[in-house]
C-alpha cells in the first residue's frame, strides 16, 4: 500500500474535485429551476401543461442518465451543426434529466399538504394565491427539503458519469493517474473515501433538516 501516489497527485485530483462541485452545483441549480416548472405543470389542471410535463417526466425517468449524456454530447451537435463543449454538454444533460426527479419531489411535497388545511384557509375567505403563499408552500417546503437535499447528494454522485465523455472531473482524473501509475487499490479506495465523506455529510444534513421540520408540525 503506497499512499505517495495520492499525495503526489493531490493538486491534480483536487482540481478534479473542484470541477465536480461546479458541475453538481450548476446541475442542482438549473435542474431545480426547470424541475419547479415541470412540477407545476404536473400539478396543473390545464391539459396543455399536464400532458407534456407528464410525458417529459416519464421519458427521462425511463432511460439511464448515461444515455442522455451521449445524446447531448455526441448526437445533438450532429443535428444542430455546432459542437457543445464537454462541460456544457454535461450540465445540459444533467439539467434535463434531474429536473424530472425534482419535479416529482416538488409535486409530492405540495400534494402532501392535507386538503383540510386548504379548506380551512378557504373557509376564512382566502383567495387561491394567498392560500398558496401562506398555507400551502410553507408546509410543502418543509416536506420537500429533506428529499431535495437527498437528491442533491445523488446528483453529486452522478457527476462521476461525466467520465464517459472524458470530462476531467474527479473520477476521470483518478482513472488517468491510475493508468499512469497502476496503483489501483490506493487510488480507487481513496476516491471511494472522498465521495463517502462528502455524501455522508450531505445525508446527515438532510436528516437534520427532516428532524427539524418534524418538531413544529401539529400532531393531528
Amino acid at each position: 500500500m503506497d499512499l505517495n501516489v495520492i499525495t503526489e497527485n493531490m493538486a491534480y485530483l483536487a482540481g478534479g474535485l473542484a470541477l465536480t462541485f461546479q458541475i453538481a452545483g450548476l446541475a442542482i441549480a438549473c435542474g431545480l429551476c426547470w424541475g419547479i416548472l415541470l412540477g407545476m405543470g404536473r400539478l396543473s389542471k390545464n391539459r396543455l401543461l399536464y400532458y407534456p410535463a407528464s410525458a417529459y417526466v416519464q421519458f427521462f425517468r425511463g432511460i439511464p442518465l448515461i444515455l442522455v449524456i451521449f445524446w447531448i454530447y455526441f448526437l445533438l451537435p450532429l443535428i444542430t451543426g455546432d459542437s457543445l463543449g464537454e462541460f456544457l454538454a454535461v450540465v445540459v444533460s444533467f439539467t434535463l434529466y434531474e429536473a424530472s426527479y425534482f419535479a416529482e419531489i416538488i409535486r409530492s411535497g405540495i400534494q402532501s399538504v392535507p386538503t383540510g388545511q386548504v379548506n380551512a384557509g378557504l373557509a376564512t375567505g382566502m383567495r387561491p394565491r394567498q392560500l398558496a403563499f401562506y398555507i400551502i408552500l410553507p408546509q410543502a417546503l418543509r416536506n420537500m427539503v429533506p428529499s431535495l437535499v437527498n437528491h442533491a447528494v445523488v446528483i453529486f454522485q452522478d457527476t462521476s458519469l461525466a467520465y464517459v465523455i472524458g470530462l476531467r472531473e474527479f473520477l476521470r482524473r483518478v482513472n488517468l493517474v491510475d493508468a499512469r501509475e497502476a496503483r489501483s487499490v490506493e487510488l480507487y479506495l481513496f476516491a471511494g473515501l472522498v465521495y463517502f465523506v462528502i455524501c455522508s455529510l450531505g445525508t446527515l444534513a438532510s436528516h437534520k433538516l427532516e428532524h427539524r421540520s418534524q418538531t413544529c408540525r401539529s400532531n393531528l
Binding site: P114, G116, N119, A120, G121, A123, Q139, R142, C216, S218
Partner: peptide, 11 residues
C-alpha cells in the same frame, strides 16, 4: 367554519 380536525396551520 370550524372543522372536525381543527385544521390549525401547524407552521
Amino acid at each position: 367554519m370550524v372543522f372536525q380536525h381543527f385544521e390549525l396551520y401547524p407552521h
